[in-house]
């Protein structure tokens, strides 16, 4: 199941002789099957939050709970897609996916793994590149493979750290549509935590947007996105509600930046 809760979570790292705070007393609750975007300016700790949720780092204070159980490290119930280097360059595309499947220790045979890999490669539109190496593919294609692997491993929770930021605008839209279609068409909707700095991306994809603050190092606001799914991008972007939401979010980010600068001065 995919319920996530962060209770009074704080994280700081050591630099020379002092501790630099990254996030402070963060409280977030995410329901099973919810698609939540986390947006915020640079330095607001969104990538750190994702590392904590993935189990790659541990909070200095507070608890992270998955289905009311404390997170103790990485786990198969969470799949992660990073911005770069999600794939291992010395393995072919297919082997990358099969490698992930093998770590599940689910006693499936090699042939079954190959079949699953090929199924998901086809789902992401990469049927013919199974034998290519990652560096033979474009950035967008590599991210599609990473998504294919995450979905093939069938985790309850999907954590994504700016996965489409390094991709050009046209491919980014394709990847967003792909993600939404995979998310909608699965047997059970995964819980998705999606970190991004692109406001439009957050509105199109999410059920809820959490705005982080670099200034307070915590959650600034949590805004539900109530546009009906499936969301028609071009139609939606022309509505007044969309513009309103977009302005609201941009203002939140801008205010935060002003506050941060004020304090520095």
């Amino acid at each position: 199941m995919g319920k996530i809760r962060l209770e009074e979570v704080s994280f700081a790292y050591q630099q020379q002789n002092s501790m630099v705070p990254v996030i402070r007393d963060v409280n977030i609750s995410i329901e099973d099957g919810e698609f939540v975007s986390i947006i915020g300016p640079s330095g607001c700790g969104k990538s750190t939050m994702l590392s904590l949720l993935a189990g790659l780092a541990f909070p200095c204070d507070g608890k992270i709970l998955l289905d009311n159980k404390r997170v103790k490290g990485t786990g198969n119930e969470r799949g992660v897609v990073f911005q770069h280097y999600s794939l291992f360059p010395w393995m072919t595309v297919r082997k990358n996916i099969i490698f992930g499947l093998r770590q599940l220790n689910d006693l499936k045979s090699k042939k079954e793994h190959e079949k699953i890999a090929d199924t998901y490669l086809e789902l992401v539109g990469l049927k013919d590149v199974g034998d290519n190496y990652p560096n033979q593919l474009s950035g967008g294609m590599q991210q599609r493979v990473a998504i294919a692997r995450a979905f093939a491993m069938n985790s309850d929770i999907l954590l994504m750290d700016e996965p489409f930021s390094a991709v050009d605008a046209k491919n980014r839209m394709g990847l967003q549509e792909l993600l939404l279609s995979l998310w909608n068409n699965g047997k059970k909707k995964k819980t998705v935590v999606f970190v991004t700095h692109d406001v439009d991306e957050a509105i199109i994809l999410s059920d809820r947007i959490i705005v982080m603050s670099a200034h307070t190092k915590g959650v600034k606001e949590s805004i539900p996105v109530s546009f009906k799914r499936p969301r028609n991008r071009s139609a939606l972007m022309r509505t007044e509600e969309y513009a309103e939401m977009r302005n609201r979010l941009v203002n939140l980010l801008f205010d935060d930046m002003l506050e941060e600068v004020d304090i520095a001065v």
Binding site: A54, G55, L56, T74, G75, N76, R78, G79, V80, F82, H84, Y85, S86, L87, F88, W90, M91, F99, G100, Q103, L104, M153
Partner: peptide, 23 residues
């Protein structure tokens, strides 16, 4: 980053050393 990518796939130590780090 390579290590993190492997960690989130839950590899055991042997796999980490011989299938991730060595290559």
């Amino acid at each position: 980053q390579i290590i993190d990518s492997a960690k989130v796939l839950n590899v055991n130590e042997r796999t980490m050393l011989f299938e991730i780090i060595l290559p």
